[in-house]
Amino acid sequence: MQQQEKKPTLVLYGNCQLSCAKYILECLPRITDQFDIGFGTSIEIDNGIDDYNCVDQEILKRCQFLVEQIAEEEMASRFVPFSQTELLPKDVKRYKIPSLSGALYWPTHFHDFRNKDYRELEKYSGKGPYPVGDRVINNMIRDGADPNTVAQEYIESDFGALMNLARLFEMWNYCGTQRDLDSDIQIHSYVLENLQKKQLFYTIRHPTMEMMAVYVASILDALGLLYSTYWDDVQKITYDPIEEYHFPVHPSIGASYGMEWITPEKTYRHYNNGSFSFPEFIYRYAHFTH
């Protein structure tokens, strides 16, 4: 029997956004008929695994397209660049793509120190009950404040009065524009145009499925692989791999930026524990309820 020739590969190298893009691409038969999809993470993690950021060599040898996320802004970036160029075929086509940032929604984003005691819990995927959190709440809790008081103060605070949100927008917009300029695939104008109309991020680095569908369409378009029924196929994907936890956007931030989708009825998911309104979520978060 003749051995079937293996397909060429389309390899994605980047953060959780490209991992999610891999998932979407693997749900598209029109793409998987032509390519195997590979992925390597650019996230720097000190886990003792030497080749943690490497892509499988066999996948790289068949690589026709390599899509690499560019580093985030230089200072404070935890980014490991792609380092296996010597394993790629000579005729590989390489494209740079920007990462997506929801930093504008959560100016006081923080990794909650309380997670470390709960990372062993299987239901939280090693990340702890609140993989993203808030610095203001964290600092008050760390100082020993009562969680009810912390939650109430946070809910009642006006971010527009506490910090220069116009300057934050200026910085966020500058970064998004720069990332686009440094890439072969551009995405910032879509984010900018839709920021007020719809929710584009669940957490600071996790885009919604709708945003991810646009992101993947941009990739396919650049590679010359976007096809007429793509949007129909994407609609059929029922599972969202990065949707399991959200972090609520403070209504005063939503109001400052004119985000129409932030209404009193808006809820935010916390794993399988339910979806909660902004105040409910903040009380639960302050108490670290899970």
């Binding site: 985030e72 802004e73 200072m75 404070a76 970036s77 935890r78 940032s101 930093a103 959560w106 100016p107 006081t108 984003h109 923080f110 990794h111 610095r135 910090m163 220069n164 300057r167 934050l168 910085m171 966020w172 970064c175 600071i204 680095r205």
Partner: peptide, 12 residues
Amino acid sequence: GWDSLAHASLMI
């Protein structure tokens, strides 16, 4: 906690 996303707010 000082990542690229927190950097902007710190700079403000």
